[in-house]
């Protein structure tokens, strides 16, 4: 491990190299992720009602929707965390629920609203993620150092994740999701609670990752950000996909936000609340 640490010091790697995806040549023509007729029914409600979605290889895909639209549920089913009631999920042509081990080795996931092993230091957490994916010690040490540097976490590497700020926690979780160089990144609300500078850094990293052949799908309810960042987008509401395609196709002549409100509805035109006006 000492060798690799030295190596990382002597030859600093660029951000793009640190986060490069490993995409086998034969996979280039298959979609990164295919969701077919996916349904999730809970006891009292249907959270996801038969959605179909294809995430093209090399795309930067945004999944947008209001709170409770079914985004997290869909992504949890797509990544093997929540068993679907019905439907199929193919990652690089592999059925996640029939062949989970080989499907899971191809994706990196940043779940939203879960605990982390926060008694570990940032560096330990990323190391643990790497070892879980079966990487050898030298590779794990090298990549951990690269990711910490790329995400501006080197200084906090030896601190417990529990003592991190919300933004730093997102970043270290992102690093843990990327250490095995997945060909598809699934990010649930990656920018929530992240400060603007860190958000810009993360965006740079994700762009570099997509340029290097990786595919990203992220969920968000910040329309401006999705419009700026994503080349594909799907709008979700009440467990249905209302529109999907390239960002330009979906938004047409208007902004993504206007198009979203138009499709999803629920806007209330109001005069404001009279007694709240101070003059």
């Amino acid at each position: 491990m000492d060798d690799s640490t030295e190596q990382s010091l002597s030859t600093p790697v660029s951000t793009a190299e640190a986060v490069a995806a490993e995409v086998p040549a034969e996979a280039l023509h298959r979609p990164a992720l295919e969701i077919q007729n996916l349904v999730k029914a809970f006891k009292d409600k249907i959270a996801v009602d038969g959605i179909n979605l294809t995430i093209p290889r090399g795309s930067f895909f945004g999944l947008v929707g209001r709170n409770g639209a079914g985004k997290t549920t869909s992504l949890s089913m797509a990544t093997g965390m929540l068993r679907p009631t019905a439907g199929t999920v193919l990652i690089d042509g592999i059925n996640v629920w029939e062949n989970p081990q080989s499907a899971k080795s191809k994706i990196g996931v940043l779940p939203d609203g879960v605990f982390l092993f926060d008694k570990l230091t940032g560096e330990q957490l990323i190391t643990y993620a790497g070892l879980l994916h079966g990487l050898d010690r030298a590779t794990v040490a090298q990549r951990t150092a690269d990711l910490l540097a790329a995400l501006d976490l080197t200084e906090a590497a030896g601190r417990r994740v529990r003592d991190y700020s919300a933004g730093m926690t997102k970043k270290v979780a992102l690093a843990a999701a990327m250490i095995h160089a997945p060909s598809l990144l699934v990010l649930d609300e990656p920018f929530e609670a992240v400060d603007p500078v860190s958000a810009s850094n993360i965006q740079d990293i994700l762009r570099a990752y997509v340029q290097g052949g990786g595919t990203v799908i992220l969920s968000s309810h910040v329309m401006d950000l999705v419009q700026r960042l994503c080349d594909h987008v799907a709008i979700m509401s009440d467990g249905h996909i209302l529109a999907a395609g390239t960002t330009d196709e979906v938004r047409g002549d208007s902004s993504l936000e206007d198009r979203f409100v138009e499709l999803v509805g629920g806007r209330k035109i109001s005069e404001g609340i009279s007694w709240l006006k101070s003059s």
């Binding site: 990544t79 093997g80 965390m81 899971k104 779940p111 609203g113 605990f115 092993f117 879980l132």
Partner: peptide, 10 residues
């Protein structure tokens, strides 16, 4: 839910 990291890995 930190167990998710194990479930998400192969």
């Amino acid at each position: 839910s930190a167990f998710s990291m194990n479930v998400l890995a192969p």
